[in-house]
Simulated assay, not measured.
Amino acid sequence: MIGERLQLRYMSWPDIREKIDSGFDTVIISLGAMEQHGLHLPECTDETIGIGLSCGLAERLGNALVSPTIIPGLSEHHMVLAGSLSLRPDTFKAVVEDYVQSYLRHGFKKFIFLASHGGNMDTTIKLIDDFKIIFQDSVFLNALTLDRLIAILSRIEKESSMPIGSCGGHACAFETSLMLYLAPAYVRMDKAKPGYVGPPTRELVETMFKYGVTGISEIGVLGDPTMATEELGKKFFEAAVEVMYQYILEQTKEE
């Protein structure tokens, strides 16, 4: 796994204390999910991608450590398919707040939330607004919004001459490629099949949230995972990390 040395879960407490004392004042918390990802990807897909992207961002920032991913997330729209888990919104908020409270006690001052699951993204914006009021001496930043993600998918889809909608946002060429890059042993490309293939618009996402994923795709896939490759996964990874890094720099340049 990319960036194990920056993951708090693999560090001893003296190592963590030393990092904080030496200026590592930022913790990246990925907000993932435990849910279905079509016929070819495991339930842990969002967790795996979230940790990978968080480690990539931490490497770029140079003063950040990576929290264990918060799972499960808000996945009610996937509950129709076996194995998915979903927290109630109040429970989800309480868990995230407890993570923040814990890390504040250890001396972290800046919190970067990275929602690796689309169902968490709008809620993450609201959480940050609330936390800025509750924890006024701390900094809260949102690394990846739904609109920012859609822009990345559309750009690379076009650059790679892929059919529009191949990167639909769920178990698609995007997520499958990232998994081939980050954790290929978990990918079953022989099982990969296209689901709904069309532009990953906000309207489409809102329809899925309202009616559930099978209201759009019987197999729970938005996009075409058969287009996925490890090389494309590296391209997506580097693009997403760069977009997030530049956003964080822009938000913190006046400090």
Rank of each mutant, 00 (worst) to 15 (best):
M189W: 13
M189H: 14
D190G: 14
K191H: 15
K191F: 15
K193P: 00
K193G: 00
K193D: 00
P194H: 03
P194V: 01
P194T: 04
P194L: 03
G195S: 14
Y196E: 08
Y196K: 11
Y196M: 06
Y196L: 10
V197F: 02
P200N: 03
T201M: 00
T201S: 07
R202T: 02
E203C: 01
L204P: 13
V205H: 15
V205M: 10
V205E: 14
V205I: 10
V205N: 11
E206P: 01
E206L: 04
E206M: 05
M208H: 11
F209E: 15
K210C: 04
K210W: 02
Y211Q: 08
G212L: 11
V213M: 13
G215E: 03
G215T: 07
S217P: 05
S217L: 00
E218S: 15
I219G: 07
I219E: 15
I219C: 10
G220P: 03
G223C: 09
D224C: 02
D224H: 01
D224V: 00
P225M: 12
P225I: 06
T226D: 02
M227C: 11
A228L: 11
T229H: 05
E230G: 15
E231R: 13
L232Q: 12
G233V: 05
G233M: 12
K234L: 02
K234A: 05
K235N: 09
F236D: 05
F236E: 01
F237L: 06
A239T: 03
A240V: 13
A240Q: 14
V241A: 10
E242Y: 09
E242H: 09
M244P: 03
Y245R: 01
Y245N: 00
